[in-house]
Every structure is written in C-alpha cells, then in structure tokens.
Amino acid sequence: MRHKDENKNEAIFQATIELLNEIGFSDISMSKIAKRANVSSATIYVYFENKEDMLGKLYVKVKEKMSRQLIHDIDDSMPTRQICEQFMRNSMRFILENRDYFFFLEQFSTSPLVDKLYLDDTASMFTAIHEFVEKGKRNGELKPLPTLFLLSYCYFPVTQLAKAHFKGEFEADEENLQQIVRMSWDAIKA
C-alpha cells in the first residue's frame, strides 16, 4: 500500500475545484484532474475510491471550512440581531476569500450528484447557527417560521451581492452589505 502524501491530496482537491469551476461537472474526468494536479491517474485512486468518493469528500471538506467561518466571533451571549449580522458578515467574508470554494458549492448544490451521494451529515455542521435562530424565535425576536426560511433571508442576499461583485455589477463594500443586513433583519424580525 502506498503512503498518502497530504500535499498530493490537497493538490488533487485544488485541481478538482479549479476544473469544476472552469468546465463543470459533466466534462470533468479523473485524468483531467490528475493532469492539473501533476499526479498520475493511478495516484488519485490511492486517495479515493472513485470520482464520486472524491467529490463527496471535497464537498464535506469545503462545507466544514465554511461552517467554521460562518460562526466565527458568534456566541450565545450576543443579541439575536447581532448574531444575524455577524453570520451575514462571516458569509460574505467566506465567499470573497474563497471564491473557488463558493462556486464549487453553488455547482454541487444544484447537481444531481448531491442527491446521489449520502451527504446528509453535513447538516450537523450548521447546528450552532440553527440553535441561535431557534433561540431567537423562542425569545420572540424572530418570526415563528422554519429556521431554514429565516437563514435563507440572511444567506442568499449575501450570495447575490457576492455574485454581482464578482461580475463587476456591484461592489461588495460596507455600504451595500449594511443595506442587505438591514433588509434581511427587517424580513426576519418578529
């Protein structure tokens, strides 16, 4: 059995993300990934059973990184409004600092592959933010709607601003982010 090199594993992941963002899921192959990562095709199979295994592990890795970033500097003692704002700021920071990861997640979430692979355990990565929202609902600070709805009003406006920023349509600056934060809070507050 060959020894696994963490640098090669990371090179394979990075090559996969780059290629997916360039050519999409339908055109990606293990040989293209190997070529981009400067490893042999056989080397990839030392690390992963097949393409689906690799993509699933990559998805989980990116989601873990994202989940840690989204709750950064948030704690239970903060008012719900401040938690929502920090969540939105953290989301924007993650997206802007990890553009390739963001676009990978966007593609993956709309791919039939996400349903094919068993990836339900990634929901547990976001337990903390769900608990903050639940607490806000119990305290009467947030509308008594499903948590997913409330979080959607905090996350998706940020993603739309980031996409517009990447296209050069809007600047993801403090002023625009603050407007989105205010609008989102107005939409979810009780």
Rank of each mutant, 00 (worst) to 15 (best):
D76F: 15
D75L: 09
E106Q: 15
N98Q: 09
I71P: 00
Q107P: 05
Q107S: 12
K61P: 04
M66S: 11
Q69D: 14
T80I: 06
F108Y: 06
S91G: 07
M88Q: 05
E64Q: 11
Q69E: 14
E85Y: 07
N90G: 02
F103W: 11
D73R: 13
I83E: 01
H72R: 14
R68D: 10
S77R: 14
R68F: 12
L70P: 00
Q86S: 05
P79Y: 08
I95V: 10
M66D: 05
I71C: 01
I74D: 00
E97G: 05
N90Y: 01
D100F: 10
F103C: 05
K61R: 13
E106A: 15
D76K: 15
D73I: 09
S109D: 13
D73H: 14
R68V: 13
L96K: 08
N90E: 07
R93M: 13
R99A: 08
D73W: 09
E85D: 07
F103Q: 10
L105F: 02
L70E: 03
D73C: 11
M92I: 02
I95Q: 02
R68K: 15
P79C: 08
R68M: 14
M88I: 02
N90T: 01
M88R: 04
N98H: 08
I83W: 02
I95L: 05
M88A: 04
R99S: 08
P79A: 07
L70Y: 05
K61V: 12
K63H: 13
R93K: 15
S67F: 05
H72C: 11
I95G: 00
F108W: 04
R68G: 11
S109I: 07
I74H: 00
E64T: 08
Y101C: 09
L105M: 07
R89K: 11
F87H: 03
F104M: 04
C84P: 05
M88P: 00
N98S: 08
F102M: 05
R81A: 12
E97N: 06
P79Q: 08
S109F: 08
N98P: 03
I71F: 01
F94N: 04
D76A: 14
E64L: 13
N90L: 01
I95N: 01
I74F: 01
C84H: 06
I71Y: 01
Q107E: 12
D75M: 09
S77G: 11
M66A: 10
Q82D: 14
F104W: 03
E106L: 15
Q82K: 15
